[in-house]
Nucleic acid binder design. Structure first.
Length: 525
RNA sequence: GGCCCCGUCGUCUAGCGGUCUAGGACACCGGCCUUUCACGCCGGCAACACGGGUUCGAGUCCCGUCGGGGUCACCA
């Protein structure tokens, strides 16, 4: 039997990081067994612009390299893959359940159910619907209808015994049937509810393994019951632990951003991204642009492989030391048996560590591709950049090395793309390196003279020049180099100074130093 | 509250009765390197929730307690 797994997102407009983890495990499992991974859209709730709300989700999966064999945009033999288009199928199943006696027409009004529920609560006993408005037959149904009532379809759940199934992650699990409710499967208007739809789809799509978050564990008995009542065998279940908040064991939620921001690591991650978004003029919404949503990482220039590798290890491990996995290795090594049962909390620092490590092995050309869009969106380079510019970006990327943690970090080097007289200066650095040291101005002036006459403008050449300079002046290199950095880049920090000067070129360096000197001591008027 | 799940360093985890004075990774703290930043290198801190059993022997098995969480819709 071919393994078929699925992920069933609701079109909400964004892709949650926990959802991706679930999807990833499904994907890995199907790939490992040479099976298929199906994307099904749970839109029984009926929103107007499903397509619009779905796009970011599909884009997210594509970006992550999680491809689906059947589903939206790719089709497949079991379509349609949108629940909103499968209503007829669900109604048929509901009818079948009604006719076979596994479901009944219930004419209770919502208030009446509510009253029963409250009574149960008052008496401190667990609630179970009395079936008082259950229609025994058509005659009784007509009677209820004459009272102006309308019917929903409820599952006629067993009242004794237990539902046992084997969870691939949790082992044998058992629930008492007596604890279950007669769940509604179809509304009065004929539309069907999630549990029915889900079971029907899993069957129709030939899903063999339902790998999903643990919050569905307690839903499993009713789904198991539906499948059984319909004469089907339930798929195998595997309930994943949820992804928890940073430093807590509560479920990670997209709605608690304000609270997560109190966590320093989370905030750092967030603010770093926000800064990049700001620099490229990205209009971000606080609802969808933050570290719980996958799109955040894409827009800031993370490597999808790093994210995926991090997520893989959130609740799963191979052994006591392997942490780095290529896609093929993941597919090879993954197993549900080694998924943990406890929740794993989202750790921004560890994610960043993975990103760092992956970034280090990205070849220059790939790094160039990662980084260019940011320079373009920030209007620092043309959309059709010249070879000279491309060369310059490559040199910067190489010189910056692992200082570029994410694609957007290239913007830390915006000074290489700004006109000499447009440079802005870090006020603290300006003060500390140019204003405060008594000799800074003189030294910079003299160094500028040497620089202007210097031929060999390679990094090595410039270094040689400076070495000679500090020797002649009998100073430490620290006394000049920081002043030069601030004058030439406006910043307190950056990569190697000689490389910086070399990339900028003599003309720009001299010009920038002149501008700085002028700004430092304007000519008396 | 009922039902269910979970409980090893701050975090992710290894551990499937003896090799555990509990291993790795990230973070953290020292030190080295150093023109800043970043990296790198060396070293360090740090955990079996608790209490009973079972056993020659328990992080590992059983029970209980405590703690954390999930779920209880005509949402998905």
């Amino acid at each position: 039997m071919t393994v078929r797994t699925r992920f069933a997102p609701s079109p909400t407009g964004y892709l949650h990081i926990g959802g991706v983890r679930t999807a990833l495990f499904n994907w890995l499992y199907s790939r490992q067994h040479g099976g298929q991974f199906v994307l099904r859209i749970d839109d029984t709730d009926q929103q107007r612009n499903v397509q619009e709300a779905l796009q970011p989700i599909l884009d997210g999966f594509r970006w992550l390299g999680i491809d689906w064999d059947e589903g939206p945009e790719v089709g497949g033999p079991c379509g349609p893959y949108f629940q909103s288009q499968r209503g007829e199928r669900y109604r048929d199943a509901a009818q079948q359940l009604l006719h076979s006696g596994f479901a009944y027409r219930d004419y209770a009004r919502p208030e009446e159910i509510q009253a029963e529920r409250q009574a149960a609560e008052r008496e401190k006993r667990s609630f179970r619907y009395s079936r008082r408005w259950m229609a025994q037959d058509d005659r009784q149904a007509a009677e209820f209808e004459s009272e102006g009532r309308s019917a929903v379809l409820r599952l006629k759940m067993p009242t004794e015994g237990q539902c046992c199934f084997n969870d691939l992650i949790r082992g044998d699990v058992a629930f008492q049937w007596s604890d279950e409710q007669d769940h509604v499967i179809q509304r009065a208007d004929g539309t069907c509810l999630y549990h029915l739809a889900s079971v029907v789809d899993d069957h129709d799509f030939g899903i063999t393994h339902v790998i999903r978050a643990v919050e569905h564990l307690s839903n499993t008995p009713r789904q198991w019951f539906i499948a059984n009542a319909l004469g089907w065998q339930s798929p195998q279940f595997a309930h994943l632990p949820y992804v928890a908040e940073p430093g807590s064991s509560q479920k990670l939620s997209k709605r608690k951003l304000a609270q997560y921001l109190k966590n320093v690591d989370f905030r750092k991650l967030f603010e770093h991204g926000q800064q990049i978004a700001e620099r490229i003029g990205l209009a971000v919404s606080a609802d969808t642009f933050h570290p719980v949503i996958v799109d955040f990482y894409r827009q800031v220039g993370y490597l999808p492989d790093a994210l995926v590798n991090y997520l893989l290890l959130l609740g799963w491990s191979l052994d006591d030391r392997t942490e780095h996995f290529t896609r093929d290795q993941m597919i090879q090594s993954f197993s549900l048996e080694r998924v943990n049962r406890g929740p794993a909390s989202f750790d921004p620092q560890k994610l960043v560590a993975f990103q760092d490590r992956y970034m280090r092995s990205v070849p220059v050309q790939a790094k160039l591709a990662l980084v260019m869009p940011f320079l373009q969106q920030a209007n620092l380079v043309d959309d059709a950049p010249s070879d000279v510019i491309l060369q310059r970006v490559v040199r910067i990327a190489e010189a910056a090395g692992d200082r570029i943690k994410v694609g957007g970090d290239i913007l830390d080097y915006d000074d290489f793309f700004i006109a000499d007289d447009q440079l802005s200066y870090d006020p603290n650095a300006w003060q500390k390196r140019l204003v405060k040291p008594p000799q800074a101005q003189e030294l910079l002036t003299r160094f500028r003279q040497r620089l202007a006459a210097w031929e060999d403008f390679t990094a090595e050449g410039v270094e040689h020049l400076m070495q000679q300079f500090i020797q002649d002046e009998s100073i430490g290199i620290g006394q000049i180099i920081h002043a030069v950095r601030v004058a030439v880049t406006g910043k307190a920090v950056g990569f190697g100074m000689f490389e910086t000067l070399a990339i900028l070129g003599r003309e720009a360096c001299v010009q920038r130093i002149d501008i700085a000197l002028q700004r430092l001591a304007p000519a008396p008027s």
